[in-house]
Design a protein around this nucleic acid. Structure first.
Lengths: 237, 237
DNA sequence: CCGATTAATGAACGCTGTTCAATATATTTA
DNA sequence: TAAATATATTGAACAGCGTTCATTAATCGG
C-alpha cells in the first residue's frame, strides 16, 4: 500500500466512524461507560474498595480525570455501576451451578453464593462495603439489575416447598439468602465467629435445610442417596 | 479562695501530676489513647467510616496529626481500637437485654444484636466494612476483646439445648450468630433482599428457632404462654 | 545543674475526588 | 463553502486525606 492509498484509507475510516456514531470521540457515551466499568471492575478486584482510585481507572482507560464525573456523576456513581455488574456476574455463576447441578439444587445455590465471594472477595465485599452518601440512593435501573440474584433463589425455593401462600414464600426465600449471606460475610471478612469453622458453607447449608424442613421441605426427596453417584441417580429418575 | 491559695493549689496539682505520671504531657499514653478512641468513636458514629478522618479526630482531641501514628501506628490502627470498643459496648447491650429478659432469652439475644446495629448503624457497619491492609492482622488483644460477644451467645445456646457434644455446640452457636448477622447486615445496608420485609428481626429469630428446634430446642419451654405476662410467668418457675 | 531521653509537633509530600474555564471537534446554519 | 453553534473532553486548581520525620520542648537520671 503506497502513501496515497494510506491517506485515502485513513480519511475514509474517519468519515465512516463519524457517520456511524455521530460523535466526535472514539466511543459513544455507552461504549465509554462500558470501558470504565470494565476497567474499574478489574481495578476493584485487584485493589479492593479501600484503595480504589477513580483517577487510576481513568488513567488505565486513557481518559482524563474529569470524564468520570461526566459519565457517572461521581466516583461513587462509577462504583455503583461496577457493583451492579458484579451482581450480574454473580447471578450468572448461580445459573451455571444450577445448570450443572444434580437433584440437590439447594446445595448448588449455596455453593454458587460462596463461589463468587471466594473467587472475587474484593468484588464481593465492595458490594456490601460501599454505601452511597446521604441523600443519594440507588438508581431504579441498578435495583432491577441486582434483583435478579434473589429472583433465582425465590424460584428454586418455590420449587422445593409444598404449595402454600406465595407471599410468605418470597419472604422466606429472602430470609434464607440472609442466612447464607451472614455465613459468607464472616468468611470473607475473616471474622472472629467462624475462624475455627472448617466448613462454613456446610454450616450455612445445614441452617438453610433446617429452616426449609420446618416449612415442609424433605431433603431426601431432592438429594442423592448415599453410595449412589449423581449421574447414576439422575438417570434413574 | 484568694489568689495566693489558688496559685499554691495549681502548683501542687502540677507537682502531683508530674509525680504520679512521670510524663511531660497532660496525659499518660493510655489516657491519651482512651481520649482518641472516645472522640474517634463519636466522630465515627456521626460521619461513618467513609468520611472518617483521623485529622478531624486529632483536631477535636486537641493534638496534632502525627500523634495518631505515635499512638496507634496508623489511622487503621485507631479504627481497629474504636471498633474493638464498639464490640464491648455491643456486648454490654446484650448483657443488659439478657438481664431484663423473661424466659425467652433467645429472643433477647436477637433483639440485642439488632438493637446496637439500629441504634448506631455507622458504628456497626464500620466493624464489618473496615479491613486491615494486607499483611497486618488483628492484634491478639483485640481478638480477645471481640470474642466476648460470641461467648455470650454460646453460653445461652448451651443452656437452651439438651446435653450433647460441646464441640458441635460451639460451632452451632457461631453459625446462629451468622444467621442473625446476615439479616442485620441486609437491614443496615438497606439491601434489596429485605427492603420489603416488615420485620427483619422477627425473620431472623424465626430462622434461629427453626435451627435450634432441629437440635432439640423446644421453644414452648422457654417462652411465655400466650395471654400470660412475663412477670407472672417468671414467678411460676 | 546538665546531658540523655522522649512526647509532641507540624510542614512537606504524594495521593484522593471534584470543579469548571478552556479547548478541540462535529454539526448545523447562512 | 464559511461561519456559527453545540458538545465531548481536557487538565490545572483546590481542598482534604494519611504518613513521615527533622525539630522542639519538657522531664528524667546522674
Amino acid at each position: 500500500m503506497n502513501a496515497v492509498q494510506y491517506i485515502y484509507w485513513t480519511v475514509f475510516i474517519c468519515w465512516f466512524r463519524a457517520l456511524l456514531m455521530g460523535r466526535r470521540s472514539d466511543h459513544t457515551r455507552e461504549e465509554l461507560r462500558a470501558l470504565f466499568i470494565s476497567e474499574g471492575h478489574a481495578h476493584l478486584a485487584q485493589a479492593g474498595l479501600a484503595k480504589f482510585s477513580g483517577r487510576e481507572v481513568a488513567k488505565r482507560v486513557g481518559y482524563s480525570v474529569g470524564t468520570i464525573s461526566n459519565l457517572f456523576g461521581s466516583v461513587d456513581g462509577l462504583i455503583v455501576a461496577i457493583n451492579s455488574r458484579s451482581f450480574e456476574v454473580w447471578a450468572q455463576v448461580l445459573r451455571d451451578r444450577l445448570e450443572s447441578a444434580g437433584e440437590d439444587r439447594i446445595a448448588a445455590l449455596v455453593d454458587g453464593y460462596f463461589a463468587f465471594a471466594k473467587e472475587s472477595p474484593e468484588l464481593w465485599s465492595a458490594i456490601y462495603a460501599h454505601r452511597l452518601p446521604e441523600g443519594l440512593d440507588l438508581p431504579e435501573e441498578d435495583k432491577d439489575r441486582r434483583a435478579g440474584l434473589t429472583q433465582i433463589v425465590e424460584d428454586e425455593i418455590r420449587t422445593v416447598l409444598p404449595a402454600g401462600t406465595d407471599a410468605d414464600l418470597v419472604r422466606l426465600a429472602r430470609s434464607l439468602v440472609a442466612v447464607v449471606h451472614g455465613h459468607c460475610s464472616f468468611v470473607v471478612s475473616g471474622s472472629f465467629a467462624l475462624l475455627e469453622e472448617p466448613e462454613p458453607h456446610a454450616a450455612a447449608l445445614a441452617r438453610v435445610r433446617e429452616s426449609l424442613a420446618a416449612h415442609g421441605y424433605r431433603a431426601e426427596d431432592f438429594r442423592s442417596e448415599l453410595g449412589l453417584g449423581d449421574s447414576e441417580n439422575r438417570g434413574s429418575l
